[in-house]
Design a binder for these strands. Structure first.
Length: 270
DNA sequence: AAAGACACCTGTCCGC
DNA sequence: TGCGGACAGGTGTCTT
């Protein structure tokens, strides 16, 4: 489900409910997520929430001392519901807030995670080796070009590699490459600096547009208030195999690159 | 160091 | 209607 725009949409949805409030309880009904939910998450109880941040696709709930770090995996979502609301299937964790509401973590596939950080994220192995945020000033075409020297990997796999740049998932990688006119199988090291500048702009644009529209709803993504995302209407290539390219009308192609379905126009993308 | 395969898990969809 | 298989928005880990 969630790529960066969906995670950011979720962050914006929960932040007003959490910021400045006290965490009354962390109720773990099923700790079997990607990693077992540690008992240490109970440290959050009784503490006030200072901020709700995002790094890559991790949500970081900053408390007075320590941080709850949450990842939505492929199928995770958060909803804000009133306390006392009956939990349903796959509702694994509830964060009880002191305003009579709770943040409910649902994740059918359990690829998501909930961890506790004592301090200093910089040292945390899951965060310490990540590439720059695509919407930050550290990210640019020059940067991508620099990292790609002597790399033979397909550009699509390259931009989806979180050590290079975070937050570009399977949908938006296809979309950004289409916008930039770059074939997804082209070797990363064989793309000019100028084309990397187009690509960096495309990545930034597509993510910003998706955030503006509340993310993409393919199956069941909904923001924390239950509203779907509307970006799906604007996808130019993802999931459109066989349909005419919006630029040249030739049928869009689909093939697997790095075990992920990839969509492109073989005429517009070289 | 880089690249690719595989793993985790459940739900859904499609063809028979 | 039921069943098997492929596939799904992520990413850490292992092997080459």
């Amino acid at each position: 489900m969630p790529e960066l725009p969906e995670v950011e949409t979720t962050r914006r949805g929960i932040e007003p409910h959490l910021k400045g409030r006290r965490m009354d309880a962390v109720e773990v009904r099923d700790s079997r997520l990607r990693w077992p939910v540690p008992d240490a998450v109970q440290q959050a109880c009784g503490q006030r929430v200072r901020a709700v941040e995002r790094r890559a696709k991790y949500l970081l709930i900053r408390l007075e001392s320590g941080t709850l770090m949450l990842h939505l995996g492929m199928s995770g979502s958060l909803r804000v519901v009133p306390a006392g609301h009956e939990p349903g299937k796959h509702d694994h964790v509830d964060l009880h807030i002191d305003n009579g509401q709770l943040i409910r973590f649902n994740d059918p596939r359990r690829f998501g995670s909930l961890l506790w950080l004592e301090s200093n994220d910089k040292d945390h192995p899951l965060l310490s080796n990540l590439g720059p945020e695509p919407l930050s000033a550290d990210f640019s075409g020059d940067y991508l070009w620099q990292c790609s020297r002597h790399r033979r990997v397909a550009i699509k796999s390259f931009v989806m590699n979180g050590h290079i740049v975070v937050g570009v998932g399977n949908i938006y990688a296809s979309e950004a490459l289409f916008r930039a006119g770059i074939h997804p199988l082209r070797a990363a090291g064989r793309i000019s600096k100028l084309r990397y500048q187009w690509l960096a702009s495309s990545i930034r644009d597509v993510l910003e547009e998706a955030i503006r529209q509340g993310g993409t709803t393919l199956r069941d993504f909904a923001s924390s208030d239950g509203q779907p995302g509307y970006f799906g209407q604007d996808l130019a290539v993802y999931g459109r195999e066989g349909l005419p390219c919006i630029q040249c009308q030739s049928p869009l192609r689909q093939r697997r690159i790095g075990q992920r379905a990839s969509y492109y126009c073989s005429k517009c993308q070289r």
